[in-house]
């Protein structure tokens, strides 16, 4: 936390190294939020870039009434939502998933193995975005409910119910996909 403030102050004072320290520290965590929210996509890195460009241009006006990481992840979530809105792909196309599962190009074992590896990703993609976001921040990033509430600008009770709903969805999706793979 204090390290981040020090880096921010360095950057504001004109030392670009301050910004670079923040990028190095948070780039992978940011990437994994994006990756978990939209799945493997060639635009994952573009979104991360856009996030840090926004940070670069508005770091001077960053108010220290919340942690830098909270602010950064809020930007990350919002930038990812913008991207999804642009692509009009808020919920993955279920037909595409079923098509990929029932496709028959190669030995069944290979297909099953491959499918199992991406099963979680597919199941995640089918969870409504707001539930998915809360769950990703909890289980991928390891935040507590209070921090998630700050990032998503909502109440702790809302976070709890979103995560609970996400797990119910995910459990249902995984059972459904497992049935396909049996």
């Amino acid at each position: 936390m204090n390290e981040d403030i020090f880096s921010i102050e360095r950057f504001i004072a004109g030392d670009a190294e301050g910004f670079e320290i923040l990028v190095r520290k948070y780039q992978n965590r940011t990437l994994n939020i994006v990756y978990s929210l939209i799945g493997q996509d060639r635009e994952n890195e573009d979104i991360v870039q856009e996030v840090f460009l926004k940070v670069y241009h508005s770091l001077g006006s960053f108010r220290q009434n919340c942690q830098f990481s909270t602010w950064l992840y809020r930007i990350t979530v919002n930038t990812t939502y913008d991207f999804l809105r642009k692509r009009k792909n808020l919920v993955n196309d279920e037909i595409a998933i079923e098509k990929s599962i029932s496709s028959n190009d190669g030995p069944v074992e290979v297909l099953v193995k491959k499918e199992k590896k991406t099963m979680l990703e597919k199941a995640l993609a089918n969870i409504p975005l707001e539930y998915r976001t809360a769950l990703v921040l909890k289980d991928i990033e390891g935040f507590d409910y209070k921090q998630i509430a700050e990032i998503l600008c909502c109440r702790i009770g809302t976070v709890a119910s979103k995560i609970s709903r996400a797990r119910q969805f995910l459990r249902g999706e995984l059972l459904r996909l497992e049935e396909y793979l049996k």
Binding site: V23, N28, L31, E45, Q49, F52, L120, E121, D139
Partner: peptide, 25 residues
């Protein structure tokens, strides 16, 4: 629920080469 959580915790993580993003930025 526990199984779902464990699956999420084991989910593949991505990483970028150290200075890759900085040079792009």
């Amino acid at each position: 629920f526990l199984k779902v959580k464990q699956l999420m915790l084991k989910k593949e993580r991505k990483s970028l080469p150290e200075d890759y993003l900085i040079s792009l930025l």
